Simulated assay, not measured.
Amino acid sequence: MSNDNLISVEHLYRRYAGLVAVKDVSFELQRGEVLGFLGPNGAGKTTTMQIITGNLAPTSGRILINGLDLLDRPRQAKGEIGYLPEQPPLYRELTVDEYLRFCARLNRLRRDTITAAVDRAKQRCGLEQVGRRLINNLSKGYQQRVGIAQAIIHSPAVVVLDEPTVGLDPIQIREIRELIRELGEEHGVILSTHILPEVQMTCDRVQIINRGQLVFSDHVDNLDRRMQSSSLILGLQQPPAQHILEALPGINDVQALDNHRFRLLHAAETNPAGAIAQQAVEQGWGLFELTPEHKTLEQIFVEITSSEQSDTEIEAA
C-alpha cells in the first residue's frame, strides 16, 4: 500500500436489527487531500464517521488507517486519527494550555514532548495569545479552534472534522476554512458538513452518501463542470412560435416562462448563445435578455439524492 494512502475503507456494512444503515461503502483518502462527506439526515453519514474513528464497530468490512487494520490493531490505528465531533469535547473550566496538555497525555505523548506538541498545535490553530484563558470565556470560534487543536495535538495522519463551522459567524467561518485547507497540506482530512458552499471552498474531492450507500464520488473540479450552464433564459419582445425556438441549432427543449421569456435547454458541452443572439437580431425578435443558467451545488445534491431515492422506491415496488 502506498504511504500516501491514509484511509482505505472496503465493503463497509452496519446493520441495526432489520435496518442497513451503511451498505457496501468503499473509498480511500490520500495524504494532502480534503474529502467532503455529504448526505441528507439519516443517510448514514454520522454512522460511517463513527465507524472510521473507531467509536462504532462495523457489522462487516475492512478499514485501514495509515496501513493499520482498525479492527485488528485498534489502539495503534486510532493513534493515527484526530477527531473533532460536532460538539467539541472541551473542559470549559480549564485553560487552553491545561486542556491541550491533558489531551496530549490522553494521546500517550511522551512527557518530554508535550510542551512542544502543545505549542505547535496552538501555533497552527492561532491560539498563541489565549493559552492562559479559560475555555469557557472564549468565543465560539476560538472554542472550535481549541477543538481542532486537540484533534491534531498528536500529529495524526488523518483528521476527521464533523460540522466544524456550525454556529460560527462569517469571519470565524472563513478563518476555520483557511485552517482546514492548511491541515489538508500535511494530513488527510475528512470534512463532514451540511454547508454545501463549504465543500466548494475547502475540499478537493466530494462524496455523497444516501440511504447508506455512496451515490456520488468525484473531484470538486468535475463537480464544478457539472454546475456549468446547460440552459439559457431568453427574453424576446416579439417572440416567434415556440416550435421555431425548438428548431434552433443546439437546443434540446424549450420551456415557456412569463413575460415573453423562455428557458432553452442545451447540451452542457455546447454554448448556442451567440447563434441565438444573431438569429434574434436578424429576425427582429427584440432580444432583451439572454442569460446562462448555472446549477448550484444544492441543486446537484438534491438531484443526486432524489434520483437515488426514486430508483430505490422503484426497485422496492
Rank of each mutant, 00 (worst) to 15 (best):
His11Glu: 12
Leu84Ser: 00
Glu198Val: 04
Pro197Met: 07
Ile153Ser: 01
Ile135Tyr: 03
Arg205Ser: 01
Glu178Thr: 13
Val146Met: 02
Val96Gln: 02
Glu186Cys: 01
Tyr142Gln: 10
Ile171Trp: 02
Phe37Glu: 00
Pro240Val: 06
Arg120Asn: 14
Ala267Ser: 15
Leu236Gly: 12
Val130Glu: 14
Ile51Glu: 04
Ala247Lys: 03
Asp97Phe: 06
Pro58Ala: 10
Ala247Pro: 02
Gln76Gly: 10
Glu186Thr: 11
Thr48His: 05
Arg73Lys: 11
Lys23Thr: 10
Val96Leu: 08
Gln200Met: 15
Asp97Leu: 13
Gly36Cys: 09
His11Ile: 03
Ala43Val: 01
Lys23Asn: 15
Ile304Met: 09
Ser8Gly: 04
Leu19Lys: 15
Glu308Arg: 08
Leu245Cys: 06
His194Trp: 07
Pro292Val: 15
Met1Gly: 14
Gly18Tyr: 11
Ser26Pro: 11
Glu282Tyr: 11
Cys103Arg: 10
Leu196Thr: 06
Thr305Leu: 06
Gln76Trp: 05
Ala157Phe: 03
Gln123Phe: 08
Arg177Val: 02
Asp311Tyr: 11
Gly184Cys: 03
Glu28Val: 11
Arg75Ala: 12
Arg226Tyr: 10
Asp253Glu: 14
Ala247Thr: 00
Ser307His: 13
Gln242Glu: 09
Leu257Gln: 14
Gln144Val: 04
Ala149Arg: 02
Ile304His: 00
Arg177Pro: 06
Leu161Ile: 08
Asp221Val: 15
Lys23Ile: 07
Gly32Tyr: 01
Ile135Ser: 06
Asp112Trp: 04
Thr291Tyr: 08
Ser8Asn: 08
Ala149Ser: 08
Asp253Cys: 13
Arg174Trp: 12
Asn210Lys: 01
Ile314Pro: 05
Glu178Ala: 14
Thr270Glu: 12
Ala247Phe: 02
Pro170Arg: 07
Glu178Ser: 11
Gln144Asp: 08
Val215Gly: 02
Gln213Asn: 11
Glu289Phe: 05
Pro249Ala: 07
Ser229Gln: 05
Phe216Ile: 04
Gly250Gln: 09
Asp258Glu: 14
Thr47Ile: 10
Gln283Ala: 13
Ala280Ser: 15
Met201Val: 03
Asp253Gln: 15
Asp169Gln: 12
Gly44Val: 05
Lys295Leu: 15
Pro249Phe: 08
Arg132Ser: 15
Pro156Glu: 07
Thr48Met: 08
Glu308Leu: 01
Arg177Phe: 03
Leu64Asn: 01
Thr270Phe: 09
Thr59Arg: 09
Glu185Ala: 12
Glu80Tyr: 04
Ala277Cys: 06
Glu282Asn: 12
Cys125His: 03
Arg177Asp: 09
Ile51Val: 12
Asp119Asn: 09
Glu315Trp: 07
Asp311His: 15
Asn5Trp: 00
Met49Tyr: 07
Val25Asp: 03
Leu191Asn: 00
Gln76Ile: 06
Gln87Asp: 11
Leu223Met: 15
Cys125Glu: 05
Ser217Val: 10
Ser60Asp: 14
His260Ala: 14
Phe27Thr: 04
Leu6Cys: 07
Ile65Phe: 08
Glu178Ile: 07
